[in-house]
C-alpha cells in the first residue's frame, strides 16, 4: 500500500513535534504555574469533613424550610423593597451616565489631545471598576447612613468605570469624516460632539447602557445585605431571623425580576441595534 517509496521519508518526520521548543517550554511553564497555584490554594482551604457529610442534609433542610413560601410577606415587605431595588438600579445607571459621559470624551484619544487629561479619566475609570459595588456600598452607608441613597451612589460609582471605558472606546472607533467636516465648517466643540460624534456612537451608547442596567438590577438586589436599601434588606432580615420561607420568596422574586430584565433588555436591544 505504500505507493511512495519509504526511503524518501524526509528526516523531518522523525523529528516532528507538535510544538516548537519555545512553545512547549511556554506551555509547560503555564501548566506548572497553574498547578502550583491550585496546590497552594488547596493546601490552605479548610474543609471540615463533618460539614461536607452534612451538606446534602443541610441543603434538603434548607429547601424544606423554604416550603411553603410565606406569601403574606410579599405585599407588606417584598413588593415595596422590589420597587426600591428597581429605582436604585435605574437612578444609579442614570447618575453613572451623567458622570461617565464627559469623562469618556476626556478619555478618548481622538477627542482629547492632552495626555494628562486622558490619564486622569483612565485613572478614575480603573478606580471605579476595581472597587466592588458592595464595597462602594459599605463606604456610602458609612457616610449617608443605611438606605437607598447609599445604594444609588454605590451603583453609580461602580458603573462609571464600566460605562466610561466602553463608551470611550466607542468614541475612539468613531469615523473621523463627519467630525472633520463639521470642524472645517467652523462648528464649536459642543456641536462637533453632538452632531459629529453622537450620531455615530449612539447605538454603542444604548447597548452599553442596557448591558450595565441589566447588571445593575442584579447588583442592586444584594446591596441591602450591607444596608444600602432594596430587596436585599428584606433578604438579610429574613435570613438573620431564619425565616427561610420568607427568604425563599425573596429569592423567587429576584429570580423573576432578573428574568424580566433580561427579557426586556434583549427585546430593546433587538429593536434599537
Amino acid at each position: 500500500m505504500s505507493d511512495i517509496p519509504l526511503s524518501a521519508a524526509p528526516s523531518a518526520a522523525q523529528h516532528w513535534k507538535r510544538h516548537s521548543p519555545l512553545q512547549s517550554a511556554l506551555r509547560t511553564g503555564i501548566t506548572v504555574v497553574i498547578v502550583a497555584a491550585v496546590v497552594w490554594s488547596l493546601r490552605t482551604i479548610e474543609i471540615i469533613p463533618e460539614f461536607l457529610y452534612d451538606a446534602p442534609a443541610q441543603t434538603m433542610d434548607l429547601f424544606a424550610r423554604m416550603w411553603p413560601l410565606d406569601w403574606a410577606f410579599f405585599p407588606t415587605d417584598i413588593f415595596p423593597a422590589l420597587i426600591e431595588t428597581i429605582n436604585i438600579a435605574a437612578l444609579g445607571t442614570v447618575l453613572a451616565i451623567v458622570m461617565a459621559l464627559p469623562l469618556s470624551f476626556l478619555a478618548a484619544r481622538n477627542v482629547t489631545r492632552s495626555p494628562v487629561a486622558r490619564w486622569i479619566a483612565q485613572f478614575l475609570f480603573v478606580s471605579s471598576r476595581s472597587v466592588n459595588s458592595l464595597i462602594w456600598a459599605l463606604l456610602f452607608v458609612a457616610i449617608f447612613g443605611p438606605g437607598a441613597l447609599a445604594g444609588v451612589l454605590s451603583i453609580a460609582f461602580r458603573s462609571i468605570g464600566f460605562v466610561g471605558r466602553l463608551f470611550g472606546e466607542a468614541v475612539e472607533d468613531a469615523h473621523p469624516g463627519p467630525v472633520e467636516a463639521l470642524t472645517a465648517a467652523g462648528a464649536g466643540t459642543m456641536s462637533v460632539l453632538v452632531k459629529g460624534y453622537w450620531p455615530q456612537v449612539q447605538p454603542a451608547f444604548w447597548s452599553i447602557v442596557l448591558l450595565r442596567w441589566d447588571i445593575n438590577v442584579r447588583e442592586s438586589a444584594v446591596l441591602g445585605l450591607v444596608g444600602a436599601g432594596g430587596i436585599g434588606v428584606a433578604l438579610d432580615a429574613a435570613i438573620s431571623n431564619l425565616y427561610w420561607d420568607q427568604a425563599g420568596l425573596v429569592l423567587l422574586t429576584i429570580f423573576g425580576v432578573v428574568w424580566i430584565s433580561e427579557f426586556v433588555t434583549s427585546r430593546v436591544r433587538a429593536r434599537i441595534i
Binding site: D54, L62, L235, I254
Partner: peptide, 22 residues
C-alpha cells in the same frame, strides 16, 4: 447559574457546607 448574584449563592452555600473558603 446566571440568575443570582454570587453573594446570594454564597449565602446558600454557607448554609449547605458551613462558613469558610469552600
Amino acid at each position: 447559574c446566571r440568575s443570582f448574584h454570587p453573594l446570594i449563592v454564597a449565602i446558600l452555600f454557607v448554609k449547605a457546607v458551613g462558613f469558610g473558603v469552600l
